[in-house]
Structure formats: C-alpha cells, structure tokens
C-alpha cells in the first residue's frame, strides 16, 4: 500500500527553523510548505488546505495562539501542533484548541512522534 503523502505547513518566524523542519520532515516523507508569520499562514491555509500545521507561538504579528484560533475557524478539521520554547503553556493548550503541544528541542524526535500520532488519529481514525 502506497503511503499517502501528507502536506504539512510549518509556521515560524525563524528562517533557519523553517529550513530545518523542512529538511527533517521531508526526510520523513512529508510534503512541506512554510510560512514566516501568522498572517501568511492564514492565507496559505485558506488557499490550499494543508493536512497539518506546525506552528510557533511567539511570532511578530499575530501570535501562534491567535493564528491557531483563526485556522480552526477556517477549517476545524485541520490539525494544529503548537511548537514553542515555552514549557509552561503546555497544559493550557493541549487540553484546549491545539491537537498537540511540543516543546521546542534540539532533537526533533518528539515533534516527529507528535506529527505521526496526530496524523494517524486524524486520518486513519485509529
């Protein structure tokens, strides 16, 4: 069975991070699009609906939290993973609007794991 290629939108104001995520996640077999701000991300979501959004919180312009709400308003079925350096937001957001919360770390293993789990839950119905 041919594995379905999911499109993931990466939102981060840091170019290096976007690049890193792109390279790492493409290696995992995902198709990656990137946005540098919350506004850009919203445009892209409404144009072409990605299968998943990985989004930073602290960004110039609208924050990741606000962008998350707006994305959910556009299509509540698009899963969003928040990925931030702040550990202390974790409890607030996991239980609320986002589908997962990952603390930014040097190792991307945790993020990759969260992406797998969310995608599986959302698209394979497991």
């Amino acid at each position: 069975m041919v594995k379905q290629q999911y499109t993931i939108l990466v939102v981060d104001d840091e170019e290096n991070i976007r690049w890193l995520y792109k390279e790492e996640l493409e290696e995992e077999g995902y198709s990656i699009v990137a946005a540098a701000s919350g506004e850009e991300a919203l445009q892209m979501v409404s144009k072409s609906k990605p299968d998943l959004v990985v989004m930073d919180i602290k960004m110039p312009g609208i924050s990741g939290v606000d962008a998350l709400i707006k994305i959910k308003e556009i299509d509540k079925n698009i899963p969003v993973i928040l990925c931030s350096a702040y550990g202390d937001y974790k409890q607030d957001f996991t239980t609320w609007a986002s589908d997962a919360y990952v603390v930014k770390a040097a190792s991307l293993d945790e993020l990759k794991k969260a992406i797998r789990e969310v995608l599986e839950k959302r698209y394979t119905g497991k």
Partner: peptide, 17 residues
C-alpha cells in the same frame, strides 16, 4: 529561554544533520 532556544534548536538540528 525563548530567545536562546530558537537559535539553539536551529544549531542543534543542523549539527545533527
């Protein structure tokens, strides 16, 4: 932490790569 961690994540990621 936030300010340091972002570049750190980049550095670490690319270093691993």
């Amino acid at each position: 932490a936030h300010e340091i961690k972002n570049p750190l994540v980049s550095i670490a990621g690319f270093a691993r790569r």
